[in-house]
Amino acid sequence: MSLINPLSSQSPLSSDKQSGQITPQSNSRSSAVTESTGNPFLDSIRLPEESTIPEANNQELTQDDFFSLLSQQLSMQDPFKPVDNDQMIAQMASFSTVDGIGKLNEEIVNLNAVMTSSQALQASGLVGQKVLIPSDTGHISAEDPHLKGIISTPEAIDDITVRIEDEKGQLIKTFTVDGSAGGNIDVSWDGLDKDGEPVASGNYSIKASGKVDGKSEDLAVSTYAHVTSVSLGTASTGAILNLRGIGGIKIGDVLAVSET
């Protein structure tokens, strides 16, 4: 017995008597032919005309996925060689450990955010005070016309030469301080140039040098800066102190705090 398509009796081609050419016959049921052949067997094996693309899903395995895989493993195991109980327990313990580590990481992130906020709240008490920073540059303004700092010396030095320079590196004033005590030596500049005139507002640097073992060497200088505000920062940086005319500095880089 052969399969006969009911629609096959209609010829798809028609003859053009005038031109002698054979052209496809226009049929209002041509769209129906593309949708169905009229044969249930052929229709069942036809490929779909439109392919559906599945939506992207989360590739992360969850605990439900793990137990599904474990169930599949148990159902497909050899009944003569079943999975060892110790091995199964080890797999479950490993997954529980990984899941616990993921939750612990989330808690640590939340804890860092809380600690950062708490640190910024504590650092807000420094607003209005001066902090010692590891920089030889300080700011002179009408509100604070003086510049103070600390010179660190490896040993006792009789005379320490101090040079005040502006942002362009030009020399503003030179004076000496006593370093016979050694260690950290306080230094203060009144904000006056070599002619005794007040300098313009801006950033100025304190450069210090002295003789160490008979040779002239540059000495490390730290300056005091005025804290104007505190920024929250991030978990890696912590609270940021905003200094007048200087910019921001990590609270962990502060060397000391001064009342004035």
Rank of each mutant, 00 (worst) to 15 (best):
residue 2 S to D: 14
residue 2 S to N: 15
residue 3 L to N: 15
residue 8 S to T: 06
residue 9 S to F: 13
residue 10 Q to S: 13
residue 11 S to F: 07
residue 11 S to Y: 07
residue 14 S to N: 06
residue 15 S to C: 00
residue 23 T to W: 12
residue 25 Q to M: 14
residue 26 S to G: 09
residue 28 S to R: 15
residue 43 D to L: 02
residue 48 P to L: 10
residue 51 S to E: 13
residue 51 S to A: 13
residue 60 E to D: 10
residue 70 L to A: 11
residue 72 Q to V: 13
residue 76 M to C: 00
residue 77 Q to D: 11
residue 77 Q to C: 09
residue 78 D to Q: 07
residue 82 P to M: 09
residue 84 D to R: 13
residue 86 D to H: 07
residue 87 Q to G: 02
residue 87 Q to T: 14
residue 88 M to L: 14
residue 88 M to S: 01
residue 90 A to W: 08
residue 95 F to S: 05
residue 98 V to D: 04
residue 100 G to I: 08
residue 108 I to L: 07
residue 108 I to V: 08
residue 110 N to V: 01
residue 112 N to T: 06
residue 113 A to P: 00
residue 113 A to N: 10
residue 117 S to H: 09
residue 120 A to W: 05
residue 120 A to T: 13
residue 122 Q to N: 12
residue 123 A to C: 06
residue 125 G to Y: 09
residue 126 L to V: 05
residue 127 V to A: 02
residue 134 P to R: 09
residue 135 S to Q: 10
residue 136 D to Y: 05
residue 139 H to D: 04
residue 143 E to W: 01
residue 145 P to W: 04
residue 148 K to S: 12
residue 151 I to F: 00
residue 155 E to P: 07
residue 155 E to C: 09
residue 156 A to I: 11
residue 158 D to A: 13
residue 160 I to T: 02
residue 163 R to S: 10
residue 165 E to R: 05
residue 171 L to W: 02
residue 172 I to V: 12
residue 172 I to S: 03
residue 172 I to M: 08
residue 180 S to C: 03
residue 181 A to I: 07
residue 185 I to A: 01
residue 185 I to W: 01
residue 187 V to P: 01
residue 190 D to G: 06
residue 192 L to I: 09
residue 195 D to E: 14
residue 196 G to M: 07
residue 196 G to F: 07
residue 197 E to F: 12
residue 198 P to M: 10
residue 201 S to P: 04
residue 201 S to F: 04
residue 202 G to M: 08
residue 205 S to R: 08
residue 207 K to F: 04
residue 211 K to T: 03
residue 215 K to P: 03
residue 217 E to C: 02
residue 218 D to N: 10
residue 220 A to Q: 15
residue 221 V to L: 06
residue 222 S to M: 11
residue 223 T to H: 01
residue 227 V to Y: 03
residue 230 V to A: 02
residue 234 T to M: 13
residue 237 T to Y: 01
residue 238 G to Y: 06
residue 240 I to G: 05
residue 241 L to W: 06
residue 241 L to A: 08
residue 242 N to L: 07
residue 242 N to Y: 07
residue 247 G to N: 04
residue 247 G to V: 03
residue 248 G to R: 03
residue 252 G to T: 15
residue 254 V to A: 04
residue 254 V to R: 03
residue 256 A to R: 01
